[in-house]
Amino acid sequence: MYESEITTPPLDPRLQEYQMMGHAGLRRQIVDAMPGLSDEEADLRVIAFWSAIYGFSSICRKGVIHISRGAVATVDIAHQIVHRAVLSALSA
């Protein structure tokens, strides 16, 4: 949302290879957990999961998330974000 091709360098091909492996592994886990999903639905669930995790990690890294002093620790929020992303990916 706050980046563009001007401010973001192109992706290293080696990193892209690992990202594709991660995508395939995540898709395999979702398909194995939910047999009968269409290819389209499996792809959408992977994209939604990946977007939630990537988006959260990106905004944390950039300091966009502001947590009130004494509130929930970032690591606890990260755990809850992953938990909710998994529930969403595996919901019927």
Rank of each mutant, 00 (worst) to 15 (best):
I47V: 13
Y54D: 11
Q29T: 07
L15D: 12
C60G: 14
R61F: 10
K62T: 08
P35Y: 11
I30R: 11
F49G: 03
V64S: 07
V46F: 06
S58W: 07
L44F: 07
A24T: 12
D39K: 00
Y18Q: 02
E17G: 13
I65Y: 06
L15F: 08
D32P: 00
A48R: 02
Q29G: 10
I59D: 14
F49Q: 03
R45H: 05
L26F: 03
A42E: 08
Q29K: 10
A33R: 02
Q19V: 14
R14S: 14
D43F: 02
L44W: 10
S51M: 13
Q29D: 10
M34W: 02
S38I: 07
I65R: 07
A52G: 03
Q16G: 08
L37N: 05
I47P: 01
R28Y: 09
E17F: 14
S57D: 14
P35N: 10
W50A: 04
D32Y: 01
L15P: 05
F56G: 07
V31F: 01
C60R: 15
V31H: 01
G63Y: 00
V31M: 00
V31E: 04
D39E: 09
F49I: 03
G36E: 11
R14F: 13
Q29L: 12
F49M: 04
S57W: 07
Y18T: 03
Q16H: 07
A24S: 07
Y18E: 08
Q19K: 09
S38Q: 06
Y18W: 05
Q29Y: 05
R14V: 15
W50C: 01
Q16T: 09
H23P: 04
G63H: 00
G22P: 02
R45E: 05
F49D: 01
S58H: 12
V64Q: 06
